[in-house]
Design a binder for these strands. Structure first.
Lengths: 226, 226
DNA sequence: GATCGATGTCGCCGCTCGGCGACATTTGAC
DNA sequence: GTCAAATGTCGCCGAGCGGCGACATCGATC
């Protein structure tokens, strides 16, 4: 309105909020795709950083630096946005499949499960979003969390499947049940550590604490699978 | 005000809420001790039934059938009330120590840990409040939850200590770390089952599902402790 | 019977939330 | 240039929250 000439290529257009005080928001100009991505990324970041407690329309919009109305328009509300996060979780698998076996030959199912356990432990430790989702899963049973949970368990299952290759568990062991317990253990250990820095009296802060935990985990895996 | 005679011994005094339509609240008449207990019980019940999500001053007061102001007066707010719940958790130990060993001689550390694992699993399955607290612990790291967490881990530690007796773990095994992982596994399995009826692809609804889980747990314990 | 502390009740405050209608601005097709 | 659709913005609504001040009622004591 206030300019009748040179309205194109304005080097620093109107910024409703002081431009230098904010960190990331990255100006977008009427680019729906970019805005959608910004919203999705904001949602993932918010969930990873703050947890599901303060996860809501208003908070996501604030973080994305856009109006919440856009979340309704583009994702149909929080549920749709959560679905989008879930869909995004599918990419987790590819990122977590190492090319080689770490210079180690996996000859037995025990070899495999030892390696998978440690890999999964490390992956969870490195992935705050995944951690928050796991914590969410055991805390609520709403439609939203169920969808996320489905996506996550599907991703986990295909990951395990891909890594398993052709190795089969020893006879006489209920591998599904045993592995479920191992996964449960890993998830809870990481969640506990992440929330309180310890689990059942075992400190989990320094890397030497984690070495102890990994050692114990290996012993357990070897105990069942040899 | 409207009665100048017979104001004592009124058979049904003023009930601000219809008396027969409510379930439990149990009329109290200016009995501070009873009111305090009612508030504490309401808080525990609310936490156990609804989880920590909707746990707040208003909800507790509603459930206790009293005014929220009393929670401030008697407990100094939610924090004090949570402390009271934590203190109450100490009684958990006594309730969970069986008199006999279930007709079984605990000769080795493996015998002991197998039994303790199954006992702990069952105890958690039977105790919704404990479950909610565990879920809370891995979801938040606030002052409130830290206090509850301390109380719970203390209770758990003394329980283990009492049950352990004079048995000692085998040499060469980091029992603290291994047991932390076992406890983590049990807690997460129960939480997962409670929230979604399954864990990592293992269904956990029917009692035969649980038998599988217990079997696997036993194998794992025996694997490390013999 | 008057008094006063203990106990219980009421209603307000400021805030955030999810949800949405109404409006402003830009872009692109014609 | 025109105009409609796409995109972004503003502000309202009803509800619930934690917190608390002010008030009502009861019971014991003198």
């Amino acid at each position: 309105m206030k300019s009748e000439s040179l309205m194109l290529n304005d080097p620093m257009p109107l910024t409703p909020i002081a431009s230098a005080s904010q960190a990331e928001p990255e100006k977008r100009v009427r680019d729906r795709g970019a805005t959608e991505k910004a919203i999705l990324n904001a949602a993932k970041a918010l969930l990873a950083e703050e947890g599901f407690q303060n996860f809501g329309i208003n908070a996501v919009a604030r973080k994305a630096g856009c109006d919440k109305q856009l979340i309704y328009r583009y994702y149909g509300g929080l549920n749709g946005l959560v679905d989008a996060i879930g869909a995004d979780l599918g990419t987790w698998v590819k990122d977590r499949i190492p090319e080689d076996t770490g210079g180690m030959f996996l000859l037995t199912y025990g070899d495999l499960m030892e390696r998978l356990s440690l890999l999964f432990l490390q992956a969870l430790r490195d992935d705050p979003l995944m951690r928050r989702i796991v914590a969410w899963e055991v805390s609520e049973n709403t439609e939203q969390v169920r969808r996320l949970s489905d996506a996550r368990s599907k991703a986990l299952a295909t990951w395990l499947e891909r890594m398993r290759g052709s190795l089969t568990p020893p006879k006489g062991v209920d591998a599904v049940a045993v592995n479920a317990i191992l996964i449960a253990a890993i998830q809870h250990i990481v969640l506990s550590a992440s929330a309180g820095g310890q689990c059942a009296g075992l400190a989990l802060k320094a890397s030497k604490d984690w070495e102890k935990a990994e050692q114990a985990l290996k012993r357990i895996v070897r105990g069942v699978y040899g």
